[in-house]
């Protein structure tokens, strides 16, 4: 078993009395795409900044690529590329000049730096715009320039904070494609997001964050079966006295819950036929039945439904 690339042990950050991150334990394996999910203010960015040594943890320990971000931040930052939320560049400089500056900060110079920049720009399909000032770039182009910077550095870890927020659907899709191709190159990727759907499609594992704590962590599929008791969520609209009870008796149905005048049925498979039969046999009127694969959003909603009670 290989060593985890990123490891956090009881990592805690307090601002005064407010706890931003509460004794976090985390291990990310090489080549993994790991998603930190949670609402804004859940402590995702703070966690990332602690991993990069940009903010000091109140207690606990982190290791990135075998180095301690607190004591050896330069080693960590050489190996990990970071793209902050709403990444900013110097607007008056061109994309090329911006990356040349970063290259110099990384100790890369001259032809070597330019070759790397060119290769990275080509990879993110930005080579046509490298000589234009960044002020003319769209949001999506800036994000891609951010990825080019990480590639140019030769980082083996990419830490992306809210990489698709503010992108239009087309740009978002292209961006996810780019992240997939980085994963195929063997890069370890840690990304944070509050957009659950996007993360679902590319992450190997996710951690659901709330109020500085990881509520749930694991593979997306496992989370679904563990939390939801199934991988499918079927929405049923039916009239009748005991429809809900009848559906609950269908084998394979884990849970039936009312949801805005409909019923949300969590099941282990596509049981639409069985459910329809059950509704009809119980004397109900079936108006609509719709099956979808469970999404991370269902897991998220379901999990955090219970959290305030538990707390």
């Amino acid at each position: 078993m290989s060593e985890p690339v990123i490891r956090a042990e009881r990592l805690t950050k307090k601002y005064g009395n407010a706890v931003a991150v509460d004794s976090l334990d985390l291990q990310i394996e090489p080549g993994e795409v790991f998603g930190l999910l949670g609402p804004n203010g859940a402590g995702k960015t703070t966690t990332i900044l602690m991993l990069l040594g940009l903010t000091e943890p109140t207690s606990g320990k982190a290791t990135v690529a075998g180095f301690d971000p607190l004591r050896q931040p330069l080693e960590v930052k050489r190996r990990a590329g970071y793209m902050p939320d709403q990444v900013g560049f110097y607007d008056n400089l061109s994309g090329l000049e911006n990356l040349r500056y970063t290259a110099k900060l990384c100790g890369l110079r001259g032809q070597d730096a330019d070759d790397r920049i060119q290769a990275a720009a080509k990879r993110v399909k930005l080579d046509y715009a490298m000589r234009k000032p960044v002020r003319t770039y769209s949001r999506g182009m800036r994000q891609r320039l951010g990825i080019a910077e990480i590639l140019m550095k030769g980082a083996s870890i990419a830490i992306l904070d809210e990489p698709t927020s503010g992108l239009d659907p087309q740009a978002s899709r292209e961006f996810l494609e780019l992240i997939r191709s980085l994963k195929n190159d063997g890069m370890t990727i840690l990304l944070s997001s509050h957009l659950l759907e996007m993360v679902q499609s590319i992450c190997d594992r996710v951690a659901l964050f709330n109020r500085g704590k990881i509520g749930l962590m694991g593979k997306v599929g496992d989370l679904m079966s563990n939390v939801l008791g199934g991988t499918h969520v079927i929405r049923v609209e039916a009239e009748g006295a005991n429809v809900a009870a009848a559906i609950a008796k269908v084998p394979g149905v884990a849970r039936v819950a009312p949801e805005g005048g409909r019923l949300r049925v969590e099941a282990s498979g596509d049981l639409r036929g069985d459910i329809a039969r059950a509704v009809v046999n119980a004397g109900g009127d079936l108006k609509m039945i719709d099956a979808g694969e469970a999404s991370l959003e269902d897991v998220y909603t379901r999990y955090f439904e219970g959290v305030p009670n538990a707390a």
Binding site: L54, P73, E75, P84, G88, F89, L105, K153
Partner: peptide, 14 residues
């Protein structure tokens, strides 16, 4: 204000 601070400080410099 240009949102470049965290990106620059994430490079291997203090």
């Amino acid at each position: 204000n240009r949102r470049t601070m965290s990106r620059i400080l994430a490079q291997p410099i203090y």
